[in-house]
Nucleic acid binder design. Structure first.
Length: 421
RNA sequence: GGAUGGGUGGCCGAGUGGUUGAAGGCGCUAGUCUCGAAAACUAGUAUACCCGCAAGGGUAUCGGGGGUUCGAAUCCCCCCCCAUCCGCCA
């Protein structure tokens, strides 16, 4: 959520910034709505002032055992006026908030303009895509032939876009989770957390999934939602809190499954592990002082890249253009890993700085010193990494001519074998 | 799921209709004292919004929402959460 005051101070600037991400929003009436809010508040405050004053006088008279009847008569009906004004004020405030909640974040100055993926820019590449002297198989074919991925039975158990991992395949997924968590906790200084996988709507509003993106979520009959990413529960750890300056920056990593309805993705990536309703992910989340968040974004992205380096997978880092970023992000790097079957790179991590956008929604603040006013923190997060896609990348990049798959060195200690098949 | 007791400021804790934003204590900040520190003493110490150049003033907030009343932390209703007991369960 943007700061209403800041928006009103520089409407043209905000509109220009939002135009960069192809966000069309109706700003007309915003100023008037805010004026209405102010005048209602003025009226309301004055009336309450009067009410409080007279009530105080009544109290004094009663204590002095004197009649207050004339004052009681005078105040009859005022309470109703207060109620009516209060309701109008609440209504206007709700309208303002509703409007603000629909507005995406403003892109950072370093973000390239553009409305779709064609304006994204490659920042750097690492590793060399492997070459094969035989026709490569894609990961779903490899997984099925090796008996470690069973898409058919998962469809029977649940439906499309689910996977049953089997034997060494299940163990590989688990090994990757442990490997990634160990790397981030032991070498990158993150604190591991294991959050709830169901969250309430306040949490989803805090990180920006609600109210706009309800269709992407699974909702339970109790009104809770399955998390679409650990970003939601982990960022909300500190919702409605004032952190101490010395606590910052805070770095959390978490393993969770993620659940996405994938509404609107019909026909896309229908085969394999790439696009599932349920997948595992290691998430990195940071809370920082505002002046440190861009440095933190570089660091967080580097931490995610480290996983791919250790696994020996070729990847590149993309900076997303304004129009391709998620709703809450001010700047996003996507990390894309090489997929031999597609002769191209596919997203495996997305690392974003949200600046104070989520912090304002979720009311996450910090205090520099005992006498200072609370300020909003900056929040960041990124995948470190999506586990299912990592399994897919390993299968494809480490496949051998005989259909077996070598296990990357870094994982052998976790898995206890050198190859699958 | 049933029963009972609770949710008050950064923390502990008083307060059951009338200057209560809220006693008292702790913590924190500043000052006095000290060579310095501790202790002691003194003062200050919430957040948001509105008016104002400012000084300052006003309003709201005692888990959340509604209601009663001239007036609600205090009374009533609904919801959430916590504790304990029972039931159930991994």
């Amino acid at each position: 959520m943007l700061d209403l005051r800041a928006v009103l101070e520089d409407l043209p600037g905000v509109q220009r910034a939002l135009a960069q991400r192809a966000a069309t929003l109706d700003f007309s009436g915003l100023e008037a709505l805010n004026q209405e809010r102010k005048s209602l508040q003025k009226e309301y405050d004055a009336l309450r002032f009067q009410q409080n004053q007279v009530s105080g006088e009544i109290a004094k008279l009663k204590q002095a055992k004197q009649s207050a009847d004339h004052l009681l008569t005078q105040m009859r009906g005022v309470a109703d006026q207060v109620r009516v004004l209060g309701e109008r004020m609440t209504g206007v405030e709700a309208q303002l908030r509703e409007w603000l909640l629909q507005v995406p974040n403003l892109p950072h100055a370093s973000v390239p303009a553009g409305v779709d993926t064609s304006a994204n820019q490659v920042v750097r590449s690492s590793g060399t895509p492997p070459t094969f002297s035989f026709p490569v198989k894609d990961h779903s074919e490899l997984g099925e032939k090796l008996g470690i991925l069973d898409f058919e039975r998962a469809t029977k158990i649940t439906g499309a876009r689910f996977t049953l991992y089997r034997g060494i395949g299940a163990a590989l997924e688990r090994a990757l989770i442990n490997f990634m968590l160990d790397l981030h906790t032991k070498e990158h200084g993150y604190t591991e957390v294991l959050p709830p996988f169901l969250v309430n709507s306040e949490s989803l509003q805090g990180t920006g999934q609600l109210p706009k993106f309800e269709a992407d979520l699974f909702r339970t009959t109790t009104g809770y939602y399955l998390i679409p990413t650990a970003e939601v529960p982990v960022t909300n750890i500190h919702r409605d809190e004032i952190l101490q300056d010395k606590e910052l920056p805070i770095s959390y990593c978490a393993y969770t499954p993620c659940f996405r309805s994938e509404a609107g993705a019909a026909g896309k990536d229908t085969k394999g592990l790439i696009r599932q309703h349920q997948f595992n992910k290691i998430e990195l989340v940071k809370f920082t002082r505002p002046e440190q968040s861009y440095e933190a974004l570089e660091q967080l992205t580097a931490n995610a890249e480290r996983v791919l380096q250790r696994l020996g997978l070729a990847y590149r880092v993309i900076v997303l253009c304004a129009g391709d970023m998620g709703f809450s992000a001010a700047k996003t790097y996507d990390i894309e890993v090489w997929f031999p079957s597609q002769q191209g790179y596919r997203e495996i991590s997305s690392c974003s700085n949200f600046e104070d956008f989520q912090a304002r929604r979720a009311n996450i603040r910090f205090r520099r010193g005992p006498k200072d006013k609370p300020e909003l923190v900056h929040t960041l997060n990124g995948s470190g990494l999506a586990v299912g896609r990592t399994v897919a990348a390993i299968l494809e990049n480490y496949q051998q001519a005989d259909g077996t798959v070598l296990i990357p060195e870094a994982l052998r200690g976790y898995l206890g074998v050198e190859k699958i098949g």
